[in-house]
Simulated assay, not measured.
Amino acid sequence: MSEHDSPRQQRAQAKRDPTEWHGQRIVTETDLGAVFVEDDAVRHRRTVRRRVRHGIVLVLLVALLAAAVYVALGIARGDITVGEAAPAPEPTSSCPVGPFDYQDPSAITVNVYNSTTIDGLASTAADQLRGRAFAVREIGNRQVDSSGMTAIIVSGEGGHANAATLQRTLPESIFVEDEREDRSVDVILGSQYSGIVPPEAVDITPIALTCAPEEEAATPGPTPSAPAPTPTAP
């Protein structure tokens, strides 16, 4: 329509134009398409990114599923343990490991001590050990922090085999190590001592030393340089 047309002519022409309504232009699909045209390259990039994201999610899901299957099979076979507490450390012991060979009694120097109030206990045991060829050197009294025990056998590291040989002869005796450097052995008799093992019952095969549990081990007093006089006869 021309601006010089009369109003009547303009209204007639508007009726013939379907894109106008009462002098206002109607927005058509063509108009919208022209405004919101999406570039093919942009649409393609969006599609590619969407496919990549879907692919990554799919790969992660497959990996998680495979890991779950692997762990399940490992647990079933026992190769993998879940929630199992670490094993507690085994208690250590200062008792010599051994085993120790039986030694010639005549080559073993023994000191015999009485820790009880029984008169003559050390002298009696010394005579019994001499009868088995042990070389008894000292006889005396010696106090220990223990009660109701049979005998304590004491030696340094070099006297382990000698102590094991003597322990075979004294039933129910226990071993305690000290810091002496020679191979001598001390025997400290307790109130339960009743004699030595009969000759035929002595075990001459290699054996280990028998030690008391650390919390129960008696602590012998210092070895006297000479038997001190006491009210109790050795």
Rank of each mutant, 00 (worst) to 15 (best):
H4I: 01
H4C: 00
H4K: 09
H4F: 07
H4R: 07
H4P: 02
H4L: 01
H4G: 00
D5I: 00
D5K: 07
D5M: 05
D5P: 01
S6L: 06
S6K: 10
S6N: 05
S6I: 02
P7G: 03
P7M: 06
P7Y: 09
P7Q: 06
R8G: 00
R8V: 00
R8I: 00
R8M: 04
R8H: 07
R8C: 00
Q9N: 08
Q9I: 02
Q9Y: 13
Q9G: 02
Q10T: 01
Q10P: 01
Q10N: 03
Q10R: 06
R11L: 01
A12P: 05
A12K: 13
Q13F: 13
Q13C: 05
Q13A: 04
A14V: 00
A14L: 06
A14R: 07
K15Q: 05
K15W: 11
K15Y: 11
K15A: 00
R16L: 03
R16Q: 07
R16D: 04
R16M: 04
D17A: 02
P18L: 04
P18Y: 14
P18R: 13
P18D: 06
P18K: 13
P18H: 13
T19M: 12
T19D: 12
T19G: 09
T19Q: 14
T19W: 15
E20N: 08
E20Q: 10
E20S: 05
E20D: 08
W21S: 03
W21C: 02
W21P: 02
H22D: 09
H22Q: 13
G23C: 02
G23M: 02
G23W: 11
G23S: 03
Q24V: 03
Q24P: 04
R25P: 00
R25K: 10
R25V: 02
R25W: 11
I26T: 12
I26F: 15
I26K: 15
V27L: 12
V27T: 09
V27M: 12
V27F: 15
T28F: 14
T28A: 07
T28R: 14
T28H: 14
E29D: 07
E29L: 09
T30V: 09
T30P: 07
D31I: 05
D31R: 13
D31N: 10
D31E: 10
L32M: 09
L32G: 03
L32W: 14
G33Q: 15
G33P: 09
A34M: 11
A34T: 08
A34V: 04
A34I: 07
A34D: 11
V35C: 08
V35M: 12
V35P: 09
V35K: 15
V35I: 11
F36M: 09
F36L: 10
V37L: 13
V37C: 10
V37A: 10
V37F: 15
V37E: 12
V37S: 12
V37D: 12
E38I: 04
E38T: 03
E38G: 03
E38C: 04
E38N: 08
D39V: 05
D39F: 14
D39L: 12
D39N: 13
D40N: 09
D40F: 12
D40V: 01
D40T: 05
A41S: 08
A41I: 07
V42R: 15
V42T: 08
R43V: 03
R43L: 03
H44C: 01
H44G: 00
H44M: 04
H44E: 08
R45P: 01
R45Y: 10
R46A: 01
R46C: 04
R46E: 04
R46Q: 06
